[in-house]
């Protein structure tokens, strides 16, 4: 009888652990959705709604389409965003990347920008990723102050090369995307 009891207890504890982990995972994901994703969705939906219903979309299309609908245009865009004086300012929360991405998404949806440009565009809007966060990111990796001093300019200058390069690689990888 005691053996059975002990066995049941062990099974119960094991199942409880797994169910607990699953429940915790569900709580975590719904919290993330409510706290981070839905508020941003509200903001983005408002932007898209205003662009589509007001006719601002046509104006944006006029200057954005030649920039985002060609490879040289996207490379220029990534170069501007990767400038070491601009990139740390454009980084925080990836809000700029998200808003520019949404504008491009609207134009892709309207057919002004061909859909195969979506892949290089994803890299063109984002060469500044994490440029605002370098000292904190390095501190999280327990870096010495001297490493931070070297690391900040090293990352910023490296982005001037790798930002546009990423757009070109993505453009090469976009062959056959949404054209078949």
């Amino acid at each position: 009888m005691e053996k059975i009891n002990r066995f049941l207890e062990r099974v119960g504890r094991g199942v409880g652990g797994v169910v607990g982990a699953l429940f915790e995972a569900g709580r975590e994901s719904t919290e993330q959705i409510l706290r981070n994703i839905i508020p941003f969705m509200a903001f983005i939906a408002m932007v898209i709604g205003i662009i589509n219903a007001s006719g601002i979309g046509d104006i944006i299309a006029q200057w954005l389409a030649p920039l985002a609908g060609t490879l040289p245009g996207l490379v220029v865009m990534s170069l501007i965003v990767a400038l070491p004086v601009l990139s740390p300012l454009l980084g925080p929360g990836a809000v700029i990347a998200a808003v520019v991405g949404t504008l491009l998404g609207v134009e892709i949806g309207r057919g002004t920008i061909p859909p195969q440009f979506s892949l290089p565009a994803l890299f063109a809007i984002n060469p500044q990723v994490g440029c605002d966060f370098i000292p904190v990111g390095l501190a999280l990796g327990e870096a010495e102050p001297e490493t931070v001093e070297i690391g900040v300019p090293a990352v910023l200058f490296s982005r001037m090369i790798t930002g546009p390069l990423a757009v070109i690689i993505a453009w090469l990888a976009s062959f056959g995307l949404y054209t078949g």
């Binding site: 969705m41 983005i44 991405g101 949404t102 491009l104 949404y178």
Partner: peptide, 21 residues
């Protein structure tokens, strides 16, 4: 999406355009 849910619109903004099509 669990990697960075707060910044998902970096992807979703452009992806929405593809979805619209």
């Amino acid at each position: 999406p669990h990697i960075n849910p707060a910044e998902i619109f970096v992807w979703l903004g452009i992806a929405e355009g593809i979805r619209t099509l």
